[in-house]
Every structure is written in structure tokens, then in C-alpha cells.
Simulated assay, not measured.
Amino acid sequence: MKAAHFATLTLAMACAVAPAIAKETPDPYVPVAGKTVDCVNIRSIRSTNVRDDKTIDFIMNGKTVYRNILPNSCPSLGFEKRFSYRTSLSQLCSVDIITVLWNVGANLQPGASCGLGKFQPMQKAPK
């Protein structure tokens, strides 16, 4: 009987849900002394890293990084971490609009549309 009680207790402890602990990731970049720029060349964008609902890092060819802090929070951007944009120019500029892409089953649907801010040059933070 004691063995059965122990097994039940062990099973109950194994099924207990531990609270999720958010790990805050340190910012890998610091601003470069200098002026922000209004536009970046689209062909030079290698990838993007959405940090939260207001912050996108644009990783450029040649390892240059520009941080764009949106003037307003963009709902679901930090959760979905993906967006689209349309421009008739070869540059993405602070006057352009991005649209959050929501994952709906196997499809992507447009979500909130939000304006970009200026592009701040960044560099790797010292260790």
C-alpha cells in the first residue's frame, strides 16, 4: 500500500505545472555615436530581428545593424515577429508602413499596420 501511495504522489508531482520564468535577453547592441538615417537600401537588408512591439533590428550585408524604434507600439509585432512592407523605391524609409503578419493555421494574414521610425546605426555591445 505504501508503494502505491508513493507512486501516486510521484505521478502527481510530475504532472504539476511549474510557473514559466521569462528570461530577459540582454541587448547585443549599443547605439553608434552619430546621426540616424531616414532610409536603408532594401537590397542590403540581410535579415531582421523583431525585439518587441516597437523595436526592429535590421541586419544589413556587411554586418551593419540599424535599429528602428517605431513611434508607436505595433500590436502583435513582438509576438508574431514577422511583417511585410510595400514600397515603390529601392529603399525602406521612416515614412513607410509595415504590416504585422499573423500566423493563422497554414496561412499568414495581415494584422496591424504601423509606421517606421528613423534608423539608428548600432554596434555590438562590449563584453
Rank of each mutant, 00 (worst) to 15 (best):
K23R: 09
V100I: 14
Y66W: 06
L92F: 09
Y66N: 03
V30D: 09
S44C: 06
F83V: 07
V32C: 01
L101E: 05
N107Y: 01
T10C: 13
V100T: 15
Y66S: 00
L92N: 04
N68T: 03
K23E: 15
R51C: 00
S44W: 10
G111S: 06
R51F: 00
R43N: 15
R51E: 00
S113D: 03
A14Y: 11
A20L: 15
K124H: 03
M1A: 14
V100A: 05
A12E: 11
A20F: 15
Q123R: 05
P121H: 00
R43K: 15
V37I: 12
I59E: 09
S84A: 10
V100W: 03
Q120C: 04
T25A: 11
I97P: 01
M122W: 06
L89M: 10
D27E: 11
T10Q: 12
E80L: 04
T8W: 03
S113A: 15
N68A: 04
Y66A: 03
G34Q: 09
Y29E: 11
A125K: 07
N107D: 09
N41Y: 13
D96H: 12
G111Y: 00
H5D: 14
L11G: 14
C114Q: 05
A14M: 15
V30E: 15
G78V: 02
I21L: 15
F58E: 08
P19A: 13
D57N: 06
A4F: 04
